[in-house]
Amino acid sequence: MSEELDDRADDASSARVKSVEVAVQILDSLTEASAPVRVSDLARRLGMTKARVSRHLQTLTQLGLVDRAREGEGYVFGRKLLKFGRAAVYRSNIVQLAQPYLQDLFAGTGHTALLAIPSRGGAMVVASVNNQFEPGIMIHPGMLLTLPTSPAARLIYYFEGKKPKPVRVEGNLRRHGLDYEANPHGTGLGGIAAPVFEPDGLIACSIGLILSSSLLMPEPEEALLDQVRHAALQLQNDYAEGAVSPLMPAVE
């Protein structure tokens, strides 16, 4: 009798583990999708019946991890999952490690310093130290930096191997080990960003500055670039010493 009860307990435990695995597979599929995903598409991708996928989606929806799309059919991430994601990002190891280097970068240059991580559509700011005396340069966590004018977004696009490559990035990396861009005809603000890599060579984040475009034209001062490179090197050494992307060109 005891062995029979143990077998039943093992079967129940195995079923629960399997349910968790399926839930994670569904969330992975939603992560990779650029639009709401239908039940039939999820079932086909996961090799499961629509009925089984629907049961899991119903549970995930009740838990707030998945939502129905507002327009049309399909499912998207739920608010609770986005809340978990934001908490994980803002409390992550690299954000904590970067804080003193952002402070030093701001203190050494007088310009707004920021840390940005890969995000769908560009780079998301996860930490910043703002210059309170320079109007129009208030950067806050959660802000999305986008192509083509954001060096942070361009670095992420470049090192994730997306096509077409952003213009000037490879040349700037080869000459300076970082990217920069002036935007005199838009906001009047420019940026400098240097990459920081994961232990496996994937891009983890960028660290850099937001400042007046006039300071980047026709070329930024080498001393300014040096301070950004130094901050990136320090953060890289703390986070994953020696890591580098195979896409990183040799600096001339």
Rank of each mutant, 00 (worst) to 15 (best):
L5S: 06
R8L: 15
V24I: 15
Q25K: 11
I26Y: 10
E32V: 09
E32T: 09
E32G: 10
P36C: 14
V37H: 08
V39R: 12
S40D: 11
S40H: 06
A43W: 04
A43L: 11
R45Y: 05
K50C: 06
A51R: 13
R55T: 07
R55I: 01
H56Y: 11
L57H: 10
Q58Y: 02
Q58E: 13
T59Q: 14
T59C: 02
G64T: 06
D67A: 08
E71N: 09
G72C: 08
Y75E: 03
V76E: 14
K80Q: 10
L81P: 00
K83S: 06
K83P: 00
A88T: 13
V89N: 06
S92T: 00
S92L: 02
I94Q: 05
V95M: 08
A98H: 08
L105D: 05
F106A: 04
G108A: 14
T109Q: 07
T112I: 14
A113F: 06
L114I: 03
R120T: 10
R120Q: 09
G121Y: 07
A123V: 05
M124T: 10
V125D: 02
A127D: 09
A127N: 04
E134N: 00
M138E: 14
H140E: 13
L145A: 05
L145K: 08
L145R: 10
T149M: 07
A152L: 00
A153M: 06
Y157L: 03
P164S: 08
V167W: 03
E170S: 06
G171A: 08
R175T: 04
H176M: 01
G177N: 03
L178G: 06
E181W: 09
N183Y: 14
N183V: 13
P184A: 13
G188A: 08
L189K: 14
A194F: 05
A194P: 07
P195C: 06
P195G: 03
V196Y: 00
F197K: 07
E198M: 13
D200Y: 09
G201D: 07
A204I: 04
C205W: 01
S206P: 01
S206M: 01
I210D: 05
S214E: 12
L216R: 02
A223E: 14
L224E: 04
L224H: 05
D226T: 11
D226P: 02
D226C: 00
V228R: 08
H230E: 13
A231E: 00
Q234I: 00
L235Y: 10
L235I: 08
N237R: 13
G242K: 07
A243T: 09
S245A: 06
P246T: 01
